[in-house]
Design a protein around this nucleic acid. Sequence first.
DNA 1: CTTATTCTTGGTTGACCATTCAACTAAGTA
DNA 2: TACTTAGTTGAATGGTCAACCAAGAATAAG
Lengths: 203, 203
Amino acid sequence: MENPPSTADRLVFAAMKLFLEKGYGSTSVQDILREAKANAGSLYHAFPTKQDVLLAVLGLYREGIGPMLLAPAWEGVEDPIERIFALLAQYRRALQITDCTYGCPIGSLALELHEPDPPVRELLATNFDGWVEAVKDCLDQAGARLPRGTDTRALGQFILTVMEGGVMQSRTYRTLDAFDASVAGLRDYLDRLQADAKINMRS
Amino acid sequence: MENPPSTADRLVFAAMKLFLEKGYGSTSVQDILREAKANAGSLYHAFPTKQDVLLAVLGLYREGIGPMLLAPAWEGVEDPIERIFALLAQYRRALQITDCTYGCPIGSLALELHEPDPPVRELLATNFDGWVEAVKDCLDQAGARLPRGTDTRALGQFILTVMEGGVMQSRTYRTLDAFDASVAGLRDYLDRLQADAKINMRS
DNA sequence: CTTATTCTTGGTTGACCATTCAACTAAGTA
DNA sequence: TACTTAGTTGAATGGTCAACCAAGAATAAG
């Protein structure tokens, strides 16, 4: 993995960067070729179509959830509930250093591609699944700190919802306000759930 | 307003329909012309560029929030908190009858247009503002049923976040599950806020 | 009726799009 | 050596795109 990356790898990384910056539709194959310093033939030798490049990018995101997203976010954070907010803080940082222009790449693609071919839609869903699963694990670890019978998977989906909705608004307003308001709302909610669980310990 | 609509109107309505169905980038000027049964020159007589058609569509959405969105959703619903959920139910219905393909037109455009020209971005933000303001009004009417000192505008933003995030996931999964889970989470949260406000009445 | 204005017609322009292809190179094998 | 395969080159293809515009029709004003 230390040797120079293959042309196919360069192409996928270039596409990942450009899809994040400009979206899928507005990124031309030429753009990818220029960014990766490759030729059209090389791309079409490695990938049948532009959409297959997208699939490779989405696959890379899926594989990267653990090592590229969760690992850095959770460094030095042990508490499972705090890990959730550390993850959200990671997205906040991304918004901050890009002046609220880049958000969640998966969410952007999910809404840009109105009627994506089934394989694309499935990979987007798989990415969401991986994210929700990670949050669900945190919630499960929090265990008795949450009310008995909490549907942790549904709560995980709710947390993804809050992240994506907050990112969407912040990108539109070009301000962190809406994202912060959304995370604050979530924080308040989780605090109340924990307070409730504490009171009802007996029973 | 009973006379046949002008060509410009037909074009804007056609564009509204197509932008919702296929997004802005994937809708060509030709598509709009075909749908509106008009010619290219007519469009460019009424609008300098395609983007100006988008601006007209966004303006129409903005004007329509009250009469086209809130009025039907709130028919027969008086309770301010229930009005919020009636509004969310309206989006659920839209998802349902389109097999989870159409969601919120503003949200879709907001994420599709990665770096929109300032006037477009501002109109998207104005649309969000109008929505949040309407929800805020409901929350303000709920008054003492919410904890003292509740930031109703921030809570309104949070509710928009939940709607948009839920719609995004449901469109990706092609299932109402994630939307329902998100609304259920919000319902639980608002219930807890109201329970809290009731207990702390005295003070 | 005449003139001015507004709107419509539809063909045209030139840029850009994803994709293809025949020719070429480099590396491996026997 | 001769042959095979994987990867590369970059020009060419056919199509679609937003936008333009000259000419004509409809409408309104004098």
